[in-house]
Computed example of a mutant assay.
Amino acid sequence: MTDSDSLQDTIPVFCTAPISKEILDEFFTRSLGAPELEGVDWIAVLVDTLDVEAITKPTRAPVGKPASYPFHGWGIEDIVKFSREHLDPVRQGIVSEHLVILDEQTMEDKTCLLVTLKEGREPEGERLTVRADFRSSLVLLNLKSLGVGGDGHFEVIDPDGVIKLR
């Protein structure tokens, strides 16, 4: 396994609705293709199974259409709880505090939900939940995950309520 196939510090991506293969491909292409992430296309993983031990490498486009959507209909708090209980950054490498959720709205406007802990909070603490365009999603969560970006990056929202890095 090369470093680019390691799950170390990968951000989990959950689908709470049946997301088409085309939208999944576009999400991973646009989010991993952001100039800020040049050369680090290993930082995201589609969590499409309840058996997280079966996840062995990062996700890149083209993405195979999931055979099932085990998180279909789950709420944000359900996803957060699952992540906290089943994802272990030490054992699997997948971070549990910073999440991307592709939901029903994703299919309509190609945006996603970003869920992250507020600065200085414990794992069970208060979370930030914002909607972002695909390009901005992994850049913002990677900044938080690495500890080089704070909550301020999640406050610059366009008039349509979506964060878009320029």
Rank of each mutant, 00 (worst) to 15 (best):
M107I: 14
I101R: 03
E126P: 03
S136R: 00
V45M: 01
K65D: 12
G39C: 09
I11Q: 06
E36K: 14
F28K: 06
P58L: 08
R30M: 11
L114Y: 04
V80L: 08
D160H: 05
P159E: 11
A17G: 04
Q105E: 13
A44T: 11
L24V: 12
K57E: 15
N142L: 09
P159M: 08
L46W: 08
G120S: 13
V40K: 12
E108P: 00
R30K: 15
I23D: 05
R131H: 09
N142Y: 09
S137Y: 00
R121D: 09
E126M: 10
D48T: 06
T59D: 12
V47D: 01
F27T: 03
T2S: 15
P62A: 05
L138A: 09
R135I: 04
P70C: 14
M1D: 11
K144H: 11
S145Y: 04
M107G: 13
W42P: 00
V45E: 00
F28I: 11
H153L: 15
R135D: 10
L50M: 05
L117A: 06
C15W: 01
S31K: 04
D41A: 14
K21P: 07
E97Q: 11
D51C: 04
L114F: 05
A132Y: 00
L141Q: 02
D3N: 08
I157P: 02
V45I: 11
S96C: 13
C112P: 08
V162G: 06
K118M: 13
A44L: 05
F134G: 09
D25E: 08
I23T: 15
G150H: 11
S4K: 07
D103V: 04
E36G: 13
G75Q: 13
D3K: 10
D78V: 00
S68P: 02
A54C: 06
L32P: 04
F154D: 03
S137L: 02
H72N: 14
P66C: 09
I94G: 03
T129V: 15
L99P: 08
A34L: 05
F28P: 08
F28T: 12
P58D: 03
G147R: 02
T56H: 11
D151R: 06
D88K: 04
D78S: 12
V45L: 02
Q105N: 10
G149S: 07
H98Q: 10
K65R: 13
S136V: 10
M107P: 01
